[in-house]
């Protein structure tokens, strides 16, 4: 019985597989050894003319050879493929140390992000945002806040006025919003008022004619000095971190009594002032038409100061020059 030499065929197959250089050649080999016109197919055609015993036996031989080749082919194909992609990746080796993508600057101004953060901290405990005009009346900026007309803060050397009678001015503090808000809303009041304020200073490293404050005001039944303390301790810890310590020292503001300044313990053990606060002075309640027994507290934070402390920014001027080299760092 004429039978093919299966070992010889398989050896020839192995030889061809070993010489493959491109993935497509596996398909050619598959065709050559297993396809319609392959030797194995030719031999299969002969089976029908064989005796049953020979047919079964030879059929099995051919089937085994075919399986052997097919399995080996797939195995080789997979390993060739995996080797091929590994090599491809090895050859694609960019110098990742180069920064081709430049940060041009597309973000919030650092003062805005500090203001947003403070607003978020207070809105989480039920404070809403209130606003008021930047060009204000002297009454709202001073008189209503218990600062009489002979007070030094009212001198033209400190305050920017809009008219020669000194009746209108650019607000020197966001505390004006307290007054505006209370004139138009009944207690309870829980507000924060972020915004611009103005002083008669030239723009330099430590001064700016424009800067930002966030005023806070809470008026509600039974609010005490302990509530003020707890509120500002909460704020400091939310903003600077739980490990930061605070202390309260007595201070003076015309529109609060008692008044305090809040200091935070900074890295090197230094204590830094970050805000002023106090219980709203009864005269302020009277000026806005609230009941004289009203109770509440107010506080004011300097936005530039918060940013300067947190990021160690050295010049206040940087905030207003808008150099992208500065803006894109935050």
């Amino acid at each position: 019985m004429p039978e093919v030499n299966t070992e010889k065929i398989f050896a020839s197959f192995l030889l061809s597989v070993g010489q493959v250089t491109k993935i497509d050649e596996f398909n050619d080999l598959e065709k050559e050894y297993l396809g319609k016109n392959s030797l194995i197919s030719e031999e299969r055609k002969k089976l029908s003319s064989m005796s049953e015993i020979s047919r079964k036996k030879y059929g099995k031989v051919l089937q085994e050879l075919s399986t052997q080749i097919s399995e080996r082919l797939n195995q080789e194909r997979l390993s060739f493929q995996s080797k091929f992609f590994k090599e491809k990746e090895l050859n694609d080796n960019k110098d990742i140390t180069i920064n081709w993508y430049k940060d041009l600057g597309s973000r919030e101004h650092v003062l805005t992000s500090v203001m947003n953060e403070v607003v978020d901290i207070f809105s989480a405990i039920g404070y809403t945002v209130a606003t008021g005009p930047e060009a204000e009346t002297s009454w709202h900026n001073f008189d209503a806040l218990n600062t009489p007309d002979w007070h030094p803060a009212r001198y033209e050397s400190d305050t920017l006025y809009l008219d020669e009678n000194l009746e209108q001015l650019l607000r020197t503090q966001t505390s004006t919003v307290q007054v505006r808000h209370m004139q138009n809303n009944k207690p309870p009041v829980y507000i924060v008022a972020p915004g611009r304020v103005y002083r008669s200073d030239q723009l330099d490293a430590t001064h700016s004619p424009v800067f930002h404050q966030i005023e806070g005001l809470a008026v509600d039944e039974n609010l005490t000095f302990s509530d003020l303390k707890g509120t500002l301790e909460y704020f400091v810890q939310e903003f600077f971190g739980k490990e930061i310590k605070t202390k309260f020292i007595p201070h003076f503001f015309p529109f609060t009594e008692p008044s305090a300044e809040v200091l935070v313990s900074w890295k090197d053990g230094e204590w830094l002032e970050i805000l002023g606060c106090g219980m709203v002075d009864p005269n302020v309640f009277q000026h806005v038409g609230y009941d004289k027994n009203s109770q509440g507290f107010a506080f004011g934070v300097g936005v530039e100061r918060l940013a300067m402390i947190r990021y160690k920014i050295d010049h206040i001027k940087n905030f207003y020059e808008n150099d992208l080299r500065f803006l894109r760092q935050f």
């Binding site: 039920g126 000095f225 302990s226 509120t231």
Partner: peptide
């Protein structure tokens, strides 16, 4: 003084 944290409605 002790500390307490009052909260607004909204």
């Amino acid at each position: 003084f002790s500390s307490n944290l009052p909260q607004g409605l909204y």
